[in-house]
């Protein structure tokens, strides 16, 4: 691909800008890119990249904005108090403020949204069937279903759901991570676009 500006050298800098939802792509050579004032970080911070992706996925929706007005009937917690002290008031808060917390949880846990590991009673969710779990949460049935669906998706690799945290999104994020590590920014950009399209 030729440089958009000098039209002679090969484009090695691929820039995608999204401003107000309008997307523009430029393909520049190293020297034109420098003239344009585009600095190229030799090491992109993976966390920053994924962090911004996740943030783009998770703009609070109407339900999320509604939550912000609520207070927990058990402990009186509100999102405003939580933002100040960074500590929740009771286990119920995870249900009451589910949408708002999801953004924070994803950021804190590298994009993960579903528990893997032991459950009370000492059985690991990664090695045992969901049916054998003995959980103590009040909404066990609903949550069980969700985990099962994900497990099924994992085993067939046929999912195309665009939900953040879904196997397909995770797989793409993993590929993106690898592409960035390999400094294959062209592939990274493609993967990022695919992820964007799945929003």
């Amino acid at each position: 691909m030729q440089c958009n500006i000098c039209k002679t050298r090969t484009a090695t800098v691929h820039l995608t800008e999204i401003i107000d939802g309008q997307r523009t792509e430029s393909h520049l050579c190293q020297s034109c890119a420098q003239k344009e004032g585009i600095t190229i970080k030799s090491q992109l911070s993976l966390n920053e990249l994924l962090g911004s992706l996740i943030a783009a996925h998770q703009q609070p929706d109407e339900q999320g904005r509604g939550e912000a007005e609520k207070s927990c009937p058990v402990c009186g917690m509100t999102m405003e108090i939580f933002r100040k002290q960074a500590l929740l008031g009771c286990p119920k808060d995870y249900e009451i403020f589910e949408r708002n917390l999801q953004v924070i949880i994803e950021k804190a846990h590298d994009g993960n949204l579903t528990h893997k590991g032991k459950i009370p009673g000492g059985i690991s969710t990664s090695t045992n069937s969901v049916e054998s779990q003995t959980a103590s949460s009040s909404d066990t049935t609903k949550d069980k279903k969700e985990i099962k669906t994900e497990n099924e998706m994992d085993s067939t690799h046929s999912a195309s759901s665009g939900q953040a945290g879904s196997p397909r999104v995770k797989e793409l994020e993993k590929q993106l991570e690898q592409a960035v590590r390999n400094e294959d920014y062209e592939l990274a950009a493609k993967l990022r676009d695919q992820l964007k399209a799945m929003q």
Binding site: L88, K118, I119
Partner: peptide
């Protein structure tokens, strides 16, 4: 305090899960 989806529920969401 445990949820099958989110794991062990903690006061700070950064400790959630395991």
């Amino acid at each position: 305090a445990f949820s099958p989806k989110l794991g062990f529920l903690t006061a700070c969401p950064t400790n959630l899960g395991s």
